[in-house]
Design a protein around this nucleic acid. Structure first.
Lengths: 232, 232
DNA sequence: AAGTGGTCTAGACCACTGC
DNA sequence: CAGTGGTCTAGACCACTTT
């Protein structure tokens, strides 16, 4: 049985996802939700408070609760799944597989993986969108020794992340973050204007001491930001 | 007046900080805290639940609440000192104070700090260089209530970071990372070419539940990257 | 059986905003 | 003024673990 406050959170997420309650718009007040949902105010309050902490809602005492404008929002210290992130905002995730191939590693790539040059690697390039708007390019190389079935997965339904954490428990990760001017192909895929910068996140993950995957994630600078709150 | 659940969180943090309750050790149960602190169980529960969400505590129903083992919290967005970072590379750090002033908070700034509009704030803009090459612009606002001596510090010798951690122990931090096109003044100070993107890191830090400082850090995209390795 | 955390309710008082 | 969110209380029932 899912807790009531979780059901309320899901209920609100669905409304946001369906567009009934759009960004900047007002969400029913606590008392209204108490009446319509039949829960107590403390329970409604918890649901709304948690969604505010998650950055999905925005509250002003004395005024009301609103859907946050900030659409793209992620926690940089976690290795997150883009699909989950989008669904948590109540939006629709879709993925378009641009490239899926087996190739031989060049010198630099082989060095990153710690395998001999000319070893076979899997390569995928996937465009992830939120409500149909491109949000991330995932340019990934995968170690076949760790994930032999990689080429037979339908990445329109399952993200590489979801598949990889299943076959290779995440053990260690390395991140590099840069601001770059995207190349033409990246720019066009993401639907970015010329002269608009991109956020580039390089990530390398290990499982059992072996490099599982390296990935280059491109985000449009105007539509995405990495954010997080933590205790040092 | 700080909310009771915040006071309880601070109380627990102090015990953890002082080493009374070390990693892996058991924290008093909800009922015990209700008795010793005189708060209701819901309030104690909220404090413990939030600290669990923050990764500070670890709870097991039917067993107890424990201080989390923290080894997994090094990540690319640590709050670090630019001067230390440069010195760690064996290079020379220098700082040039561009602006140092007292000003009145506008609406948005006041909102970020959680103070009434027109409250006095300190403002500093400092250019940090590595071996004479500009690397970071630090555009910072500081809460005078927390750091009253801020205006009398020589920031060519001591970084604001070093001063602030001394007067206000860092408790919580919020980060936002963006790729942006810098404005002309930022671009010129950093000696960047036109059309070159910048990495913008916004940070807000808390001490004892009060916002100590907000800062906008600009880095030239071509000369800087954020990197880190951690175990999830 | 006793203790733990997980959840939920039905009240309450407060400071604040809008009219 | 009525409405909003922010907080707090004193109960309650539950599933679970430990003794």
């Amino acid at each position: 049985m899912t807790p009531l406050y979780q059901q309320i959170k899901n209920h609100i997420r669905e409304h946001i996802g369906a567009g009934t309650w759009g960004p900047g718009q007002r969400v029913p007040s606590e008392n209204e939700l108490v009446r319509t949902l039949g829960a107590s105010r403390m329970t409604v309050n918890r649901a709304l408070r948690e969604m505010t902490d998650e950055g999905i809602l925005h509250r002003v005492a004395g005024v009301g609760t609103f859907v946050a404008d900030r659409t793209a929002y992620a926690h940089p210290l976690e290795v997150r799944n883009i699909a989950e992130e989008i669904r948590a905002r109540g939006h629709q995730h879709s993925a378009q597989v641009v490239t899926l191939e087996t190739m031989r590693a060049g010198g630099e790539l082989a060095g990153n993986f710690g395998v001999p040059p000319k070893t076979n690697l899997f390569h995928s390039l996937i465009l992830h969108s939120e409500n149909g708007v491109p949000l991330q390019i995932e340019d990934r190389y995968v170690n076949p020794a760790v994930a032999p079935d990689y080429m037979s997965i339908d990445f329109a339904k399952t993200t590489p992340y979801e598949y990889l954490v299943r076959v290779a428990p995440l053990q260690e990760a390395e991140h590099v973050l840069r601001a770059v001017m995207p190349g033409d192909s990246v720019r066009k895929l993401l639907g970015m204007a010329e002269g608009e910068p991109a956020l580039l996140l390089l990530r390398r993950t290990w499982s059992n001491g072996v490099v599982t995957s390296t990935v280059r994630l491109y985000y449009p600078g105007s539509r995405y930001e990495l954010a997080g709150r933590f205790n040092p």
